[in-house]
Design a binder for these strands. Structure first.
Length: 190
DNA sequence: CGGTGGATTCTCT
DNA sequence: GAGAATCCACCGA
């Protein structure tokens, strides 16, 4: 499994999603650098996924999902929070991996400042965006060379659990949520 | 063109 | 565990 990020993102979203676990995502926003190791993701799109924002065709909101892989798709959830996805699959198709959580590895004080607390900094999609400074204005940026990008350092290893996706009402039977259980944690599965 | 309902999080009970 | 906060894309009329 793999290696090259570009190659990974051209493949099926249900394979790309777990392949993003353990990778280091960094942001340089507002002159501040933060970084996390991705520990929780969900796959959306793929072949006729009714839970995907792209189900039903292109709209202004989901346009980036239809573009080339490796870009960031950011949307607003519940009118309050931002959530970020990695666009996957060939241009013209619409699939993305929702980044649901990570473990802070760089710029922790910056994240604490943005979150207004010192715990639970990045353990949810909205929290992750807030901590890293990602907002709607970053919709469409390239994850290879822009202000939000993946570091080309070795992935962290761990056991990968597959579970149903969270917070959706359709296609709940697909186990397209992937969690990186770092070594010891097994209790999180369901 | 108005109503509706989230790929959530926080606070309070 | 329940409920509020709070915006806008989407759908039906």
């Amino acid at each position: 499994m793999s290696g090259h990020l570009g190659t990974l993102l051209e493949g099926p979203v249900e394979e790309a999603a777990p392949g993003l676990l353990g990778r280091c995502l960094v942001s340089e926003i507002g002159g501040l650098r933060t970084g996390v190791v991705i520990t929780e993701v969900e796959a959306y799109g793929g072949d006729g996924d009714p839970a995907s924002h792209a189900f039903g065709g292109p709209t202004p909101r989901n346009a980036v999902m239809f573009g080339p892989p490796g870009r960031l798709y950011v949307y607003r959830a519940y009118g309050i929070h931002w959530c970020m996805n990695v666009v996957v699959g060939p241009e013209g198709t619409a699939a993305a991996v929702l980044l649901r959580g990570g473990r802070p590895v760089e710029g922790r004080p910056i994240m604490e400042g943005r979150r207004g607390r010192t715990d639970h900094l990045t353990d949810g999609p909205g929290k992750l965006c807030r901590a890293m400074g990602v907002t709607g204005e970053h919709d469409g940026v390239s994850l290879f060379d822009d202000v939000v990008r993946f570091e080309s350092r070795p992935r962290e290893e761990g056991m990968i659990l597959a579970t149903p996706r969270i917070g959706i009402s359709k296609a709940t039977e697909r186990r397209w949520r992937f969690v990186l259980a770092a070594g010891d944690v097994l209790a999180a599965g369901d």
